[in-house]
């Protein structure tokens, strides 16, 4: 945090990780139990992209098979359960932030980089993550959490690859965070 919070406005502590993990696991289980699907985030973001492309160039969406599958002709790419889910994620994140007094404009960064550098890297990292998530057919939530708990072989290989890569890259990106 860049500024010290005002007295009485100090953010609450984060939950114990095992408690948060157990609750998240129960939620994930309930999601499978009730809907047959786990949790996801990146698929919905992709649909936002397709919707935006549709506004600018519907013809292009119609003639690109990958995009048309979601947003071709009379298909609305936003008409999907995952889009509802990310609306819920935003809302749930906001409410938790309000309850725990953590909603305020700020930039999280390592001590040795400027805010501008951090934002530039966030943009680059986000783009790499977005591209990779489509290549892997899912993100940390959809592949990692959902596929992992549904025992998909590919999801476990994915988790292995992602964490292995991250731990190696972290050595070279130390300046960003430490």
């Amino acid at each position: 945090m860049t500024t010290a919070p005002a007295p009485g406005k100090a953010p609450a502590r984060y939950w114990n990780p095992y408690l948060g993990g157990a609750l998240l696991g129960l939620l994930l289980f309930l999601s499978f139990f009730v809907t047959g699907n786990g949790l996801g985030a990146s698929g919905a973001l992709n649909r936002v992209v397709v919707a935006a492309e549709g506004v600018v160039a519907q013809e292009h969406v119609d003639t690109t098979p990958y995009l048309a599958e979601m947003g071709g002709a009379d298909r609305n790419p936003l008409d999907h359960w995952m889009v509802l889910e990310i609306l819920g994620i935003l809302l749930g994140g906001l409410v938790s932030g309000l309850v725990h007094k953590r909603v305020r404009p700020e930039t999280f960064k390592g001590p040795r980089v400027s805010a501008a550098t951090r934002l530039a890297f966030a943009l680059i990292g986000g783009a790499v993550m977005g591209y990779g998530a489509r290549l892997a057919r899912g993100c940390t939530s959809g592949q990692g959490l959902s596929g992992g708990s549904a025992m998909s072989e590919g999801s476990w290989l994915f988790l292995l690859a992602m964490f292995a890569s991250a731990y190696v890259v972290a050595i070279f990106a130390r300046r960003l965070w430490r």
Binding site: G125, A133, T140, S141, L160, S165, A166
Partner: peptide
């Protein structure tokens, strides 16, 4: 593709600091 995508995401995770779901929060 799953493992290559995962490895790329590992880079994005460290460089960008988030994954898609957490960045929304």
């Amino acid at each position: 593709p799953g493992m290559v995508g995962g490895a790329i995401m590992g880079v994005g995770f460290v460089v960008g600091g988030y994954c898609p779901g957490t960045s929304l929060v």
